Amino acid sequence: MRTRTYGRLQLTHQEVGYSLEELSNLSWVQSKVASVRPSRFGFDIEVGPYAGTIVVHENLVITIDEMVPGTVDACLALSSSGRRQAAQAAQPGSTLPPLAAIARAFSAMVERELAAGPQKEYIATSAHSSRVRGKVHVGETVRALWSRGRHDLLAIRYRNLSEDTEINRYLLAACNRAEHLLRHHDEARITVQRCMQMLSGAQMLPDPAFPSLSPSISTDLRGTLRMAEAIIRGVPFNFQSAGASPFSAWVNIDRVFEEAVRTLCRSTAPTNFTVTDGKSQKIPLFHAIEGEGEPMQKRADPDIVIYGDGRTGLLDAKYRKSGEKVTEDEIYQLIAHAGAFSADAAALVTPALHGPPGIRRLGRVNTGCSVDVIAVDPTQADVMSDLIGRWTTSLAQ
């Protein structure tokens, strides 16, 4: 059974074979990949911005297709390498499935990170030993050992150089999932298996927590860990006990598309402009004047903010089935963000689903801020880059 991203499925009670409570315990429901609502004849399943597979049971596997086939493959390449120099179109039948594409991109990133071997850290270790090593903990030795007649032991603490670190455990768990996603793509799968061997000094955890990152961590490693997070959060671990049985796995296409747009903004914006995300700016939507009560605590959070030379531009990436025929809600949200940031220009970036790619001016609001729709082909890297580049360049003029 197949659907498209943002699709709705209607299933009968006989097809599903579960109660609503049993469905609610499935991994893809708990992760909000799709919502399930009871209907007169069974269940309505509403799929969000994801692609991949969701398994109800072995006889009911739902394949969620990309809205524009090839989006994940092309946008991941943009995010990792920036603008491509030659035209890169997604040819029918030549692109990887979304899950394999994200696993392949991760395999290349983690292989580069491990080129010089896995990272090692000094891990604080406590032990009871008859041989002095490191520092002797006198209090614990007296209370926990000697008071119980164990005069042959000392409580010691030392630092041990180990590969069993938070980062290595997280990368290993992601490699394990990627290896399953690439089971039909031998070349990339061999790369992942080689990386797993290099990370064998780390402990395999079913669902590791995202590691705490020091400020000194490299940008490349941070990006690799974020890609690992996408795999770990999108592939439940229960596939391992299922053997050859199908398992649920998904990728959030909204985030992949948004990151590709952000990458293109960074590579095409004027050199004296800064590109960041709106959420980190913590700009409130509402204010209050003297004598009024506290305003509602709501922040503007556009996907991308570009500023420099006293000018500000906002972009929101919308990978929606409406395409360039944007909804009023999306327009009003963008205008609200533009007002909060006192923006000079704002735009919605959408897939071109109803016509050729291009930039369409919706108009200007009372503050003079221009509002545009940038319709792109998410599988054409150079066309995306040129259109976004034209918009970011016009911001500086």
Rank of each mutant, 00 (worst) to 15 (best):
T3R: 07
T5S: 11
T5E: 15
R8N: 12
E15K: 11
Y18G: 01
L20I: 11
E22L: 07
S27P: 14
S31L: 10
V33S: 01
V33D: 03
R37E: 14
F41Q: 13
I45A: 00
E46L: 12
E46V: 13
G48S: 12
G48L: 09
A51E: 04
T53H: 14
H57F: 09
E58N: 14
V61N: 03
E66P: 05
E66N: 08
V68H: 07
V72G: 08
A89E: 12
A89N: 11
A90T: 10
Q91A: 13
L96Y: 03
L99M: 15
V110G: 00
E111M: 09
R112Y: 09
E113W: 10
L114Q: 04
A124P: 09
T125Y: 07
S129G: 08
S130R: 15
R131H: 14
E140D: 14
S147Q: 13
S147K: 12
R148S: 12
G149C: 11
H151S: 12
H151G: 00
L153G: 04
I156Q: 06
L161D: 06
L161S: 08
T165W: 02
I167T: 15
A174L: 10
A174H: 02
R177S: 05
H180L: 10
H184G: 00
H185D: 13
D186F: 09
R189M: 05
M198I: 02
L205S: 02
P206N: 14
P208C: 09
L213G: 06
S216A: 15
T219I: 14
D220V: 05
L225T: 08
I232V: 15
I232Q: 05
R233F: 04
V235P: 04
S245T: 01
P246N: 04
A249V: 01
I253C: 06
V256C: 00
F257N: 01
L264V: 12
D277L: 02
S280P: 01
H287D: 08
A288Q: 12
E292T: 09
P295G: 06
P295Q: 10
P295T: 10
I304M: 10
I304R: 06
D309L: 14
T312S: 04
S322G: 08
T327Q: 15
T327V: 00
Y332F: 09
H337W: 10
A340Q: 11
F341L: 09
G355Q: 05
R361S: 13
G368N: 08
S370M: 03
V373R: 04
V376Q: 02
Q380H: 14
D382W: 06
D382V: 07
M384N: 02
S385F: 02
S394Y: 05
L395N: 01
A396E: 03
